[in-house]
Amino acid sequence: MGLSLFEGLTKSLAMTVLSEIGDKTFFAAAILAMRHPRKIVLSGCLSALIVMTILSASLGWAAPNLISRKWSHHITTILFFGFGFWSLWEGFTEDGEAEELAEVEAKLSADWKAEGDSSKSNFKSDDLKKQQRPFLTQFFSPIFLKAFSITFFGEWGDKSQIATIGLASDANPLGVVLGGIIGQALCTTAAVLGGKTLASQISEKMVALSSGVLFLIFGLQSFLSEAEIS
């Protein structure tokens, strides 16, 4: 059990770091931290990533209970190989870093412009505005909710989420959760503290190639190992 926990933690940690560095949510955290308090941005982004990691690992943990252990193991192996070749293809053929950074900047700039126009046209009293605020914003900062929602929906259906589901179905789910949370904390903290300068200096090509090699190693290891059929 201990070895399985450690194996799940290390695999999840390595996969998370290589998947999240230079990702859209990484750029979003870096850019948001340039305009808003870093602590609030960090707490919002990290909360979303922790929730997403737990949800993904829970789905992976439930998978062997829905289908046979043998089939879930084979599906996980195929996913690892698929993501490995996908990442290598992205690394060799795409110049995704500038495109993703520009896309995130454009999205956030449009949101900020819309917020600015809205605030200029709104002359209601503070008490009236407070009464009309959405329920969640009565308890959470709008900046926190924005960072949370951008990160959560940005990660939904992402390669790293699906890989976490597959990893949790074939490794210790608790180890996968712990490794994922540690990895997310490291990447998000680096994005928030390093800002756009750090994000723009990251080599997306090298990250994609490294993650591709890592996924292929996981796939090969999964292919060579026998699924434990209980």
Rank of each mutant, 00 (worst) to 15 (best):
M1E: 07
G2M: 11
L5P: 07
E7Y: 10
L9R: 01
T10N: 00
K11E: 12
T16F: 04
L18M: 13
I21E: 04
K24G: 04
F26M: 08
F27W: 05
A33T: 02
M34I: 00
R35N: 14
R35F: 13
K39L: 15
I40M: 09
S43R: 05
L46A: 02
L49Y: 05
I50Q: 01
V51S: 06
M52H: 03
L55M: 12
S56T: 06
L59E: 02
L59K: 02
G60Y: 05
L66F: 14
L66R: 04
I67Y: 09
R69N: 14
R69E: 15
H73N: 08
H73D: 10
T76E: 03
T77W: 04
F81L: 11
G82W: 10
F83V: 06
G84W: 08
L88E: 03
G91S: 10
T93K: 13
E97H: 14
E100Q: 11
L101H: 08
E103G: 10
V104H: 06
A106K: 12
D111G: 00
W112C: 01
K113F: 14
E115R: 12
S119F: 06
K120M: 14
S121G: 12
N122R: 11
F123W: 03
S125V: 07
D126K: 13
L128Y: 09
L128M: 11
L128I: 12
Q132D: 12
R133N: 02
L136Q: 02
L136A: 15
T137K: 03
Q138C: 09
Q138W: 12
S141I: 11
L145S: 06
A147G: 07
S149K: 02
I150P: 00
I150V: 15
F152Q: 08
F153Q: 05
F153E: 02
F153Y: 11
G154M: 09
G154D: 11
K159S: 05
S160P: 04
Q161H: 05
I162M: 12
A163W: 01
T164K: 00
L167D: 05
A168G: 10
S169G: 14
S169M: 08
A171H: 13
V177K: 03
G179D: 09
G179S: 10
G179T: 09
G183R: 02
A185V: 13
L186R: 01
C187A: 15
T188P: 07
A191W: 07
G194W: 04
G194Y: 03
T197N: 15
A199S: 13
I202T: 07
K205C: 09
M206C: 00
V207E: 09
A208Q: 13
L209C: 08
L214K: 02
G219L: 01
L220S: 08
L220V: 14
S222Q: 14
S225P: 00
A227P: 07
E228N: 11
S230R: 10
